[in-house]
């Protein structure tokens, strides 16, 4: 990866698998449950978090030497909230349709534990470029899991992907439905996301036993 040193590449790639924020650190679970009933929402959320986390990491990293440690959590919150509000306003002015899709997620981005977690654990101790890479890596790791969950929940729960009826029409009984297949309504409620996350964690740890914690 000519552009990045090995260590820098690791910042981006590690969170994708062996240090994944959702499946290994178990952060950001709340939004992974709430918005993954359809694939599109998962993708939109992943992109939004990527923007806020990468930008926020850079801002916090630039300020890391002047932030008073007593109020650093509040400072971090203010940075996230400001970024999110600015993004929301700009979208509402120039990409109104997109901003309507995003509206639900704005509040969820501010409360996403991954963002605070990365500010606290990484940006406060590292330079802007590395913080930026860390932000990109972690939001990608977050996004991958979201997309996987969204894919299965939308496919099995609604029989669609990104709104397209890939399995046929459930009411007119075409495609797969003509053989008596039914959508699983359980998949569109939040507990199903927890089960899908559980399965992902299981698969990941059985492939790489070193990830299993010893008690």
């Amino acid at each position: 990866m000519g552009l990045l040193s090995k260590k820098e590449a690791g910042l981006v790639l590690d969170p994708l698998a062996d240090n994944n924020p959702i499946t290994i650190q178990v952060l950001g679970i709340c939004s992974a449950l709430a918005i993954t009933a359809e694939l599109k929402a998962s993708i939109v959320m992943a992109v939004s978090v990527m923007f806020v986390l990468a930008m926020g990491n850079v801002v916090i990293s630039l300020m890391r030497n002047i932030i008073p440690s007593k109020i650093r959590i509040i400072v971090q919150l203010v940075v996230v909230a400001t970024l999110v509000i600015i993004v929301d306003q700009v979208l509402r002015a120039f990409a109104y349709e997109l901003s309507k899709t995003l509206s639900v997620f704005v509040g969820l981005i501010i409360t996403n534990c991954i963002i605070m977690g990365r500010f606290e654990a990484f940006a406060l101790a590292n330079g802007p470029w590395r913080s930026f890479l860390d932000g990109i890596g972690n939001s990608l790791g977050y996004g991958i899991i979201l997309v996987i969950i969204g894919f299965f929940r939308e496919l099995l729960g609604s029989g669609t992907l990104l709104g397209f009826k890939v399995l046929g029409d459930p009411i007119a009984k075409t495609g797969l439905y003509s053989f008596g297949y039914e959508n699983n309504g359980f998949m569109i409620i939040p507990p199903a996301a927890l089960i899908v996350v559980g399965i992902i964690i299981w698969v990941q740890r059985s492939r790489n036993p070193s990830l299993v914690e010893e008690n």
Binding site: N65, I66, I67, P68, S69, K70, I71, I74, V75, V78
Partner: peptide, 21 residues
Amino acid sequence: AINTDKNVYTVVFAAVMVVIV
């Protein structure tokens, strides 16, 4: 080096941040 643990600094920092944001 700035002493970021001082109370005065914390208050000033917070005030400046609020104004900027």
